[in-house]
C-alpha cells in the first residue's frame, strides 16, 4: 500500500507542481509551541512535514538547527515526544516523515522504531548518517512496517554509487543541494540541478532538494526541476529570532506563505 507521502507525490505529479516539505525539530520552539507552529505550517499550505528527532551530535547540521536541537533536548524531547508530534501531524492531515541520526534508532530498537513510525501514522524516515553499507537491518525493518526509507544523495556521490543508493530509497530521494551542512545560503548551488538530473538518470522516484533553501525565489527555481523543496533552517530561524512565540508564529506564517507561493510558480 502506498504511504501518504507517496500518494502526495503522485497527486502533485498530476497537478504538475513540486511539494513544499517543512522541517521542524520535535519539541521546538517549546512543547506546546511545536504544535502551534506545525498548525501554522499546515494552514499555510505546506504539503508535508519532516519532524526532526533532536540529537546531541548533529554533524550534518549548521548552527541554526543545532540551536533548535539544543532547546528541544533541554526541554526533554525524546522518542516519546517525537512520536506524539508525528501523531499530531497525522491528525492535521499531512504526510509526515521523521528525520533522525542513526543512534537514537539503534537505541530505541530498529524494528520497534520502524513499527512505531507506521503505528503513529508516519510515512517514513530520513537517515542522514546511515550509509547504505550499514542499512541492511533497517531496510528490512522499514519494508516489513511498510514505511519509506529515504537516503541523502550528495553532489560528491559517484555515478557508480548513485545507483546503489537510490535503489535502497523509497518515497523520494533526498538531494543535498551542496557540499556542506544545513542552513540558508544566498543562492542555490548550480550543483543542485546537476545532481537532480543525475538522480533522474538512475531512478524514477520523486526527488526533493534540501540544504540552503530559504526564499521564495529559491523555492521557485528548484520547483522548476525537482519534485520537492525541503526547507528547515529558514523556518527555525524566524522562530529563534522572534521576540516571543506569538510574533514568531506570525513571521513563520509569512515565510510559509512565500514559500508555498514559490513552489507554485516553478513551472
Amino acid at each position: 500500500m502506498a504511504t501518504s507521502l507517496e500518494q502526495m507525490f503522485a497527486r502533485l505529479r498530476m497537478e504538475d507542481r513540486a511539494a513544499l516539505i517543512a522541517y521542524l525539530p520535535a519539541g521546538f520552539p517549546s512543547v506546546n509551541g511545536s504544535k502551534k507552529a506545525l498548525g501554522v505550517l499546515a494552514q499555510a499550505g505546506v504539503d508535508a512535514i519532516e519532524i526532526g528527532f533532536p540529537y546531541s551530535d548533529p554533524v550534518m547540521d549548521g548552527p541554526i538547527i543545532q540551536a533548535a536541537a539544543d532547546i528541544s533536548l533541554k526541554s526533554g524531547t525524546g522518542a516519546k515526544e517525537v512520536f506524539e508530534t508525528l501523531s499530531y501531524v497525522n491528525d492535521l492531515g499531512l504526510p509526515c516523515v521523521v528525520m533522525t541520526y542513526w543512534n537514537p534508532i539503534e537505541r530505541y530498537g530498529i524494528e520497534r522504531f520502524a513499527k512505531d513510525i507506521s503505528g503513529f501514522g508516519g510515512s517514513g524516515v530520513i537517515t542522514p548518517d546511515l550509509t547504505i553499507e550499514e542499512s541492511g537491518i533497517w531496510g528490512g525493518a522499514a519494508s516489513i512496517s511498510g514505511i519509506n526509507r529515504i537516503y541523502v544523495v550528495a553532489p560528491s556521490t559517484s555515478d557508480k554509487r548513485m545507483k546503489s543508493v537510490v535503489d535502497q530509497c523509497s518515497g523520494f530521494v533526498y538531494a543535498a543541494s551542496l557540499m556542506g551542512v544545513t542552513g540558508g545560503r544566498a543562492t542555490v548551488s548550480t550543483q543542485a540541478r546537476e545532481l537532480v538530473d543525475r538522480i533522474r538518470g538512475a531512478s524514477s522516484l520523486p526527488v526533493a532538494v534540501g540544504l540552503g533553501v530559504s526564499t521564495r525565489e529559491q523555492a521557485r527555481e528548484i520547483a522548476g526541476y525537482a519534485d520537492g523543496v525541503i526547507v528547515g533552517s529558514a523556518f527555525i530561524k524566524v522562530l529563534l529570532e522572534a521576540e516571543d512565540e506569538a510574533s514568531g508564529l506570525i513571521k513563520l506564517r509569512e515565510l510559509a506563505d512565500q514559500l508555498v507561493a514559490g513552489v507554485r510558480e516553478g513551472r
Binding site: 554533524v59 542513526w102 543512534n103 548518517d129 550509509t131 541523502v152 553532489p155 554509487r161 543508493v165 543535498a176
Partner: peptide, 12 residues
C-alpha cells in the same frame, strides 16, 4: 566500526 556518516563524505 563501519561508517555512519553523511553521504557527502563517502567519496573522501
Amino acid at each position: 566500526g563501519g561508517r555512519f556518516v553523511p553521504e557527502a563524505l563517502i567519496g573522501a
